[in-house]
């Protein structure tokens, strides 16, 4: 029995096809202007790569900010629930999930059974979200991946007077003009991102194990800085790409539903 999860985010869309608690295929694409176009494209790509057809999918759950606009899903489930469930599948011992998305960030606490106890989210301010990194990478003329890797080479990371993306961007432009080494600016950017995220995470209280999901979890500069800010080790997700955690969670909910369970 095949099920699928589709996570339509502001920057990327993810689809996961699962069978018997195992991932058959997963795809990540850049999101289109319309959430339903993203959903169609990413799902069709995953199906094509798995050699499957839409009718082979017993149940499909949608999540992400565009979830209500996806026509082919059987059910929509919140991102918080999906990230919690996905992270639990990726790291069974996880109790705290930190997810940094393209334009939001969340911290989720799970109990021993993996049920969500509490969560906190920021989608009001670009600071501490993937958008912050995106804006900075653009003015620095770097890929997001490059920005992450540069921290390691920095000796003197810069600091920013304000966490605001607008003001930090102006500071970065000034620092570039002042010929500050680019790795020091990159490290400063990653630190700023981590310190903002740490405030959110600390406010719900951390419990081990802590793991990070979302695309930013692949940015070592941010993850290392966040470990320092939190004073805690972040368990790296190795089983699958941390960026598809939400889609995995969605597929797991679809599995539950297809097996006769109630979400």
């Amino acid at each position: 029995m095949f099920v699928s999860g589709v996570d339509v985010g502001s920057l990327t869309s993810k689809a996961v096809i699962m069978k018997d608690d195992r991932i058959v295929k997963s795809v990540i694409i850049k999101s289109k202007a319309r959430p339903w176009e993203s959903a169609d494209e990413v799902m069709d790509m995953a199906l094509a790569r798995a050699g499957l057809d839409r009718k082979d999918i017993k149940n499909c759950v949608g999540t992400g900010y565009g979830r209500d606009k996806i026509s082919f899903i059987d059910e929509a489930v919140s991102e918080i629930a999906c990230h919690g469930r996905g992270a639990r599948w990726l790291v069974p011992s996880v109790r705290t999930v930190i997810d940094i998305g393209g334009q939001d960030c969340k911290a989720i606490r799970l109990d021993a059974k993996g049920d969500m106890m509490k969560f906190i989210t920021n989608d009001k301010c670009a600071s501490g979200t993937g958008r912050f990194l995106e804006v900075m990478a653009k003015v620095m003329n770097l890929d997001l991946d490059e920005l992450g890797e540069m921290s390691a080479r920095s000796k003197q990371p810069v600091t920013f007077a304000s966490a605001c993306t607008v003001w930090a961007q102006a500071d970065v432009i000034q620092q570039l003009n002042d010929k500050v080494p680019i790795e020091d600016i990159a490290a400063g950017v990653n630190n700023a991102m981590a310190s903002r995220m740490a405030i959110l995470a600390n406010s719900i209280g951390l419990e081990n194990d802590v793991c990070m999901t979302g695309g930013v979890a692949k940015n070592n500069g941010v993850v290392n800085a966040l470990e320092k800010h939190l004073g805690i080790r972040i368990k790296r997700i190795r089983r699958e790409d941390p960026q598809i955690a939400g889609a995995i969670g969605a597929a797991l909910f679809a599995m539950e539903k297809a097996s006769g369970g109630v979400i």
Binding site: A33, Q103, K124, C125, A126, R131, V135, T165, V166
Partner: peptide, 17 residues
């Protein structure tokens, strides 16, 4: 719907579109 300048700029571009 956005208070943040960064998010509002995107929202405004969508409104224009």
């Amino acid at each position: 719907s956005n208070q943040c300048v960064v998010f509002a700029e995107t929202e405004i571009i969508s409104l224009v579109n």
